[in-house]
């Protein structure tokens, strides 16, 4: 049950997108999102949609993985759609009853809003599905490096993030194991009234916390034993380096952003 969480799940692969520098992917995701918010009408959206479908095809990841990721957000998407349908005014009135009025403008806004949210989510999935969490934090750290001048502990934040990411699967596995062990002793996590169910979580949470603290302690000792002293003067085994393909991709996305800006100023 817990294994179904697809939090930043990585799908291994060797595609063009997989091999891009994480900084490139981060930057392009930001550019894509910016373009998405500028897009106004069919042609712009069609372009954005095409780009996403094309990128998904390049990664070789099954489209169903993206759709499955959308599922938990279905409620929000439906809510947004309904709200927009009734909220927007203008255009031809199609239907009216009491305070509810549906107009062509409302339908259009709702349609674009839903499309925008879905593209936004799938776009970020594209990033996390093709980049290992470690590469992602490395990329983030390098992008934020200039903030070090302002005494922001960038390295420490990045380290905390990689440790957290690193331990999510471990803790999930551990939680699964403890759940099984308690079920083997007849624990019942599935049925009962709310208070009973909360109580039933105790046999899971106590050992999980104990083990999380134990792991944190062990990790701290292991890091100290390897003379970890923070980011200062620290070198990397795998140095990220941007190549021609990264610059080309960034240039492409910049052109896209500019293009969308022009298109939407033309109202397309």
């Amino acid at each position: 049950m817990l294994k179904d969480i697809t939090l930043g799940q990585y799908f291994p692969g060797e595609s063009f997108i997989h091999r891009l520098d994480p900084r490139t992917k981060l930057l392009c995701t930001v550019l894509y999102i910016a373009a998405l918010f500028m897009a106004k009408f069919f042609i712009s959206y069609a372009l954005m949609l095409f780009l996403l479908v094309f990128s998904v095809a390049v990664t070789g990841i099954r489209p169903s993985a993206f759709l499955r990721g959308l599922k938990p957000l279905l409620l929000i998407i439906i809510f947004t759609a309904v709200l927009n349908v009734f909220y927007a005014r203008g255009g031809t009135q199609l239907f009216s009853w009491w305070v509810f009025t549906i107009t062509t403008e409302g339908l259009k806004t709702a349609f674009f809003m839903v499309l925008r949210i879905m593209l936004l989510i799938c776009g970020t999935f594209l990033l996390t599905y093709t980049t290992t969490p470690m590469a992602l934090t490395d990329g983030l750290e390098l992008i934020m490096n200039p903030l070090k001048k302002l005494r922001v502990p960038v390295h420490e934040f990045a380290m905390m993030m990689s440790i957290a990411l690193r331990f999510i699967p471990t803790l999930i596995e551990e939680a699964d194991k403890i759940t099984s062990a308690q079920k083997a002793r007849g624990a019942n996590f599935e049925t009962g009234r709310l208070t009973e169910r909360v109580k039933a979580l105790l046999p899971l949470l106590v050992p999980l916390f104990v083990s999380a603290f134990r792991r944190a302690d062990e990790l701290a000792v292991a890091m100290e034993a390897r003379c970890y002293r923070g980011g200062e003067g620290r070198t990397r085994m795998k140095k990220l380096c941007m190549g021609a393909r990264d610059f080309l991709t960034i240039a492409g996305f910049s052109v896209l952003l500019a293009g969308i800006a022009v298109l939407s100023s033309l109202g397309l």
Partner: peptide
Amino acid sequence: VFQYPEYQLF
């Protein structure tokens, strides 16, 4: 009895 069952004590 699972492997390392001591981690289930609560």
